[in-house]
Every structure is written in C-alpha cells, then in structure tokens.
Amino acid sequence: MKTDIILCGVGGQGILSIATVIGEAAMHENLYIKQAEVHGMSQRGGDVQSNLRISSDPISSDLIALGAADVIISMEPMEALRYLPYLSKEGWIITSSKPFVNIPNYPDVETVMADLNKVKNVIILDIEKLAQDNAIPRSANVILLGAAQKALNIEYDKLENAIRRVFGRKGDAVVEANLKALAIGKEAQR
C-alpha cells in the first residue's frame, strides 16, 4: 500500500491538523511516513502545501514526484489547482469550494470551478457551510478528511480511532464534533 498526498491551502487554514490525523492513523498501522511541511515566512497568508507520503514499504524521498500524487486535499479551490502537475491522471482532488481572496488578481470563481471539474476525480464541498449547518464550526477541515477517506486508502474506523487519539486530551465534545465531521465528509464521497 502506498498513498502520496498533497495537502494545501493558504497559510493559517490548518492543513497540518489534517496531516496530524492521517499521520496518527498511519503510525498506528505501523506504516512508513514522510511528511514535508512548510514553516516560516510563507505561513503569513501565502500559499502553503505539505507532501504527505504513507506506505507499507520504506519511503525514500520526502517529496512527491510530478504526476505521482494520489490525492490533493485542499482547503481552498484555487490552491488545489496549483499542484495539478503533481496529480496522477487517476488521482483525486478533494477541496473546499470557498475561495480565500487575499490577492487582487484572484481568478473568477466560475473559472476555478470549471478548471476543477476538468479533473476526472474531484469532490468539491462547501465544508464551512456543512460545518455551520451541523453546529461543528471548528471541524470543517475534518469534513474534508472524511471526504478523502476512500482516496486515501485508509479504513474509516482507523481514521475514527486516530481522531479519538489526536483530540482526546481536548475533551469528549471536541472528539464527538470531529467524528461527526468525518461522518459528514464520508457521506459526501462517491
């Protein structure tokens, strides 16, 4: 088993907490993990990405090769498009639909959606609205994780258990909110 994942978004959107849950699940299964992160200046509202690789065999490179990513999980629709050259032709994009506009030349939202829909396997979700409607406003990113579950090739209950371990010390309410978010995301898969 090997899954190459690109997590992306805008600095401050919390892509690393998704990575933490996936990493926890993978570590518990004794899988090999490599996760290249972005720290420093780009975190100030710039584009950020993390290469997360999990595999049952040892992993050499910390970086994913062009055309090799199985999944792009993005907190922002245009950011998902930035990494298209890395996405395998059979790969999946799972992205939030809500643009984060902090630059003057942000493209038309219709153009971004049209570009996304050109990709063979894509799931576009209004995670913030889903989170609001279900009274779990702080767990929007975990909805995205739920929607990526099949593409990640990690069993659902293993992600659930990882959530229990990662969020456990923040109390039951936080764990429950995130489990609910994961379930909402799972429903949105196809």
């Binding site: 600095g11 710039g46 990513a69 245009m78 950011e79 930035r82 298209l84 032709k89 570009d115």
Partner: peptide, 20 residues
Amino acid sequence: EVCEGYASCDDVAPRPPALC
C-alpha cells in the same frame, strides 16, 4: 522519463505572503 500528471493550470494566481 518524468511521469506526466495534469497540465499546469494557467488560471492560478501567485499568492505571496503578506503582513497579517
């Protein structure tokens, strides 16, 4: 041979970091 993924998307705008 370098693996072919999707073509890069021309609509993507640069997003440099900025002061908060």
